[in-house]
Structure formats: C-alpha cells, structure tokens
C-alpha cells in the first residue's frame, strides 16, 4: 500500500535460535515485518509458531539459551534509527520502555510480588527522566485512573497479589504507557484472563491507541481478537511470516493455504452453524525437525509434489482476489511465485 505511514519498526530477516541439548530450535526463522506509526498490527499463528519469541526479540529480551542469530530490528526514533540487534546497552535501554513498551501475557507473574504497584509503575517514569521521584506518585495515580482502575490512590500502595488478573493487566498497561511509547507490543495480553475481562482489556487497548496514536503490535492466537483490533494482520507459521495484508483482505480472502486452513478451523458468526469446522490438517512438526522447502508443505492441501518440498518460497506481493486488481501485503507461497513467473514470462 502506498499510503502507509512512516515506519516505526522494521524487522528484516530476523533469526532467533535456542541452543538446547538436543539440538537447535529455530524459533524465529527469517521474519520480515514493518509497522507504521499509529498502526495496529496483529501477529497471529498457532501456539509455538514463534510469535512471542519474535515479539521479545524486538526488545532483545531473549533469555539464554536463546539468541538472536541474524537480521535487523530497526526502531525509528525522532532523529535516529536504532538497530536493536546490535545496539549497545545504553542505547538499547533508552528504547526499552521509552520508545517501545511491552505488555505481557501473565499479569500476575509479570509483576514483582515484593513491590507496590506505585513503585513498579513509577520506576520507568523516573528512569527515563519523565518525572522526579516526588512527582512520580501523582503521575502513577493519574495513569491508574486512565486505565480505569477504581480508587487509584489506594491501589498505588497495594501489592500485585492483592488484585485480580484483569486489574493487574490494566496496571501493566498503565506501566507500559507511562513514558508515552511510540510502539506498544502486547504479547497475548488477554490469554490469561476470563472472557468478559478480555473484552474490557481489548476495549481499553483500542481506546488508548486511538487517544495516543501509538502503534500496537498485538500478538494473539485468536483470530477474533485480531479482527476486532487490527488494521493489518501478519500470519506466522513455524517462525516465519507466511502472509501479511489488511485485516479485511486476510480474513475475507486469505491468499496463503495456511491462513485459509486456519480460518476454516474457527466458527464464523452468521454462518448458522451449518458449516463444519475443520482443524488444520496434521500436527505442527517437532521443534528439531523443520520440513525442507516450504515449512507448511506436510500439512498443505495445495501441496505441489516436487516443488513445495524442495524450494523455500520467497516473499512476493500478494494479489487481491478477482475482480479487484493489484496487491495487498505479501505472501510466501510457491503458488504465487508461479503467478509472478508466468506474468514475468508473459511480459517478456
């Protein structure tokens, strides 16, 4: 799309590996992604497809034995570009929490049980010079009120174990927003919460996104959440992005066979329940046995013998479904490389 905003984050050919005793797990294997300013991008995929590891790699939060082994992660600051893969410590820390903040999956485990909410939220304010220690408390109370926590003055002095998961996730969001980041990475922010609370948290996130104009990278395995929140969707499979595009296109007319299979496995509202749900064929391959060629080929219903099991598909612009012309996003599938090759042949 040509009207895209200036990028805030560009991930290029990112590789993150875990060196385990039994071998190397390539959790993220050649991810390319771009997020524009103010854009909401949902990254979807099955459990274990590398979404979370990719998200954590952005802030270089991979614990041993994991390691980023290649690629670049460029964060665009006001007057400079920071490559998070190679940035030295101080530069890395000036991005963490200030330009790019993160909300984690389990709010209860992600807060220290030994410190009050006020202490943990005010910390980044003081750290990044947004407030003095004396001002921090007022700011924390404001932030807690902003994310819809009742009696914020009292809550600021309480400990995480005194609160519910939903309230803590609000507090985590307040913590992430404290320094006014340009990009918020939300890693499955609602997975650990019950359904009603999930909806509230998503509403809050969307509202805050509109008000602040920050970009959001939403990691989720829930296509419904993605549909509700995102401007664009990126679909991941086995550590790579297989398809990107605007939310409408990806959900209504998916181009990659994996996206199609994924969509067939979730119920659609209004289909009257007559349509049978079909799970994605087969199982996610074991972590050490990455299939050759296209990683999805053993489960693909449009598998082309002799090609898909030997050639790794590249990323090509993804065509819009007929009758629309043009492309929207990208897709990594040999079927579309055929189209491009054919077009190429026809043109020459």
């Amino acid at each position: 799309m040509s009207t895209r905003a200036a990028p805030i984050l560009e991930i290029e050919d990112l590789h993150t590996c875990f060196e385990l005793d039994d071998g190397t797990v390539r959790a993220v294997s050649g991810v390319d992604l771009t997020i524009g300013r103010g854009e909401v991008l949902a990254v979807v995929g099955e459990s274990g497809c590398g979404k979370s590891v990719m998200a954590r790699s952005v802030l270089r939060l991979i614990d041993k034995p994991g390691r980023i082994t290649g690629g670049s992660i460029r964060v665009h600051d006001a007057d400079r570009v920071v490559d998070m893969v190679t940035a030295p410590g101080p530069e890395l820390r000036s991005v963490r929490g200030r330009k790019v903040a993160m909300v984690f999956q389990e709010p209860i485990a992600s807060m220290s049980p030994m410190h009050t909410l006020g202490n943990q939220i005010g910390e980044s304010l003081v750290l990044h010079g947004r407030a003095t220690k004396a001002e921090a408390r007022t700011r924390v109370v404001d932030l807690l009120r902003r994310v819809g926590i009742a009696a914020p003055e009292r809550r600021a002095d309480e400990y995480p174990f005194q609160m519910s998961g939903g309230m803590l996730q609000r507090a985590m969001i307040a913590m992430a927003l404290s320094c006014g980041p340009d990009l918020l990475i939300a890693d499955e922010p609602t997975t650990a919460l019950d359904v009603t609370t999930q909806a509230q948290i998503l509403d809050l996130l969307r509202e805050l996104q509109r008000d602040t104009g920050m970009a959001v990278m939403l990691i989720t395995h829930d296509l419904g959440v993605a549909a509700q929140m995102a401007d664009r969707i990126a679909v991941m499979y086995l550590g790579s992005v297989v398809e990107t595009g605007t939310t409408d296109t990806v959900l209504r007319s998916p181009r990659h066979p994996y996206t199609r299979a994924l969509l067939r496995s979730v119920p659609k509202l209004g289909s009257g329940g007559r349509e049978r749900l079909r799970p994605v064929r087969g199982m996610v391959p074991g972590p050490y046995a990455r299939p050759p060629g296209c990683p999805f080929h053993p489960r693909c219903e449009e598998f082309m013998a002799g090609r898909c099991d030997s050639t790794v598909p590249g990323r090509v612009p993804a065509p819009l479904p007929a009758p629309a012309a043009g492309t929207d996003g990208t897709v990594s599938c040999l079927r579309y490389e055929d189209v491009r090759d054919d077009e190429g042949k026809a043109a020459s």
């Binding site: 939060l61 929490g97 220290s112």
Partner: peptide
C-alpha cells in the same frame, strides 16, 4: 521469572534490575 523480563523491558540497567527484583526476593 516473567517479572524480571518485564522489568528489563522497562529499560532498567542490569545491575539495578538484579538488586531490586530477583536479589530482593
């Protein structure tokens, strides 16, 4: 633990992080 990762994501320097959170616990 996740809370250590979360604190790191705030941009705390490693030694400060270490003393304030896991060592304290």
């Amino acid at each position: 633990k996740p809370y250590v990762v979360a604190a790191r994501a705030k941009g705390l320097p490693e030694w400060k992080l270490l003393l304030k959170y896991p060592v304290r616990t």
